[in-house]
């Protein structure tokens, strides 16, 4: 499903460009959940931005394909229409744009790009109501401007709300556990688990093992120095928790 081959990227202007991804390879088949773990400063978030097309990064080598299509030359909105979704580590505030308006505009823009009909207002409202109920989101909150005045936990739940509304094919969760208390973490994980599907892939980026107790990965990769330096099953996450990154990284080096 998502196939990253020998991907290299830099950040910054020409002379001061800094290599941040250095020949990274990764393959997430449909139906699987892969976790990416790594120490702070291991540019885990960078990988999510390069994959979703944020400006400021330059791909200098390698490829990334979603279902066989190279995504790296696509505008961010085209990647979104193809099914790429990023749950942001720090969701952005959009003053003046209510949540419902925002999500409906996004949904219809994606549908238009795919040549599909727009969703009807009643269908949208019904779907929104169902998703909001599952995530314990107050209907009033969905009328407020996107993320403005939301608590950290509310912002993360709103990311999952958007994800469940837009039903992307491939999910990237960037440090979704940061800033969440245990109850919010469970709610968010329930939402993510409800999205698990044989046709859908997920990449869960996290610093701590904790999130993986709730979202069970099929594989765990350790990212350091712009590469995947170790891959294993869920037990690798537990080892990292016990031995620390230094222990595992020392062994790899």
């Amino acid at each position: 499903m998502l196939k990253i081959t020998n991907l290299s990227a830099t950040v910054g202007e020409a002379a001061e460009a800094k290599t941040i991804l250095n020949g990274l390879s990764l393959n997430v088949p449909a139906g699987e959940v892969h976790a990416i773990m790594g120490p702070n400063g291991a540019v885990k978030s960078t990988l999510s931005y390069v994959l979703t097309g944020r400006s400021g990064y330059e791909v200098t080598g390698g490829s990334a394909t979603l279902n066989g299509e190279d995504v790296l030359d696509m505008d961010p909105e085209i990647r979104a229409a193809k099914g790429m979704f990023l749950s942001f580590q720090y969701p952005i505030e959009i003053p003046g744009v209510p949540v419902m308006t925002f999500v409906r505009t996004a949904m219809n823009a994606q549908r238009k790009a795919r040549g599909e009909a727009e969703i009807s207002a009643p269908d949208f409202i019904k779907k929104s109501r169902d998703v909001a109920k599952m995530l314990n989101l107050d209907a009033e909150m969905l009328k407020r401007p996107v993320n403005v005045g939301f608590s950290g936990g509310e912002k993360k739940r709103l990311e999952i709300y958007q994800m469940m509304m837009l039903e992307p094919k491939f999910l990237i969760l960037d440090e979704t556990d940061s800033g969440l208390d245990i109850d919010a973490l469970k709610t968010v994980a329930d939402g993510v688990n409800a999205m698990r599907d044989p046709s859908r892939g997920m990449l869960v980026i996290t610093h701590y093992q904790r999130l993986l107790d709730y979202i069970k990965p099929d594989k765990v990769h350790v990212l350091a120095k712009g590469q995947i330096i170790k891959t294993g099953g869920p037990e690798l996450a537990l080892r990292l928790e016990q031995e620390g990154y230094d222990g595992v990284l020392g062994e790899a080096a």
């Binding site: 097309g53 909105e77 942001f88 505009t105 823009a109 994606q110 790009a113 958007q162």
Partner: peptide, 18 residues
């Protein structure tokens, strides 16, 4: 704001519309 523009586009809203 670049961050706001990227957030909208990541959700599928084309640049001009965003």
């Amino acid at each position: 704001d670049d961050a706001q523009m990227f957030y909208l586009r990541q959700r599928g809203i084309p640049e001009t519309q965003a």
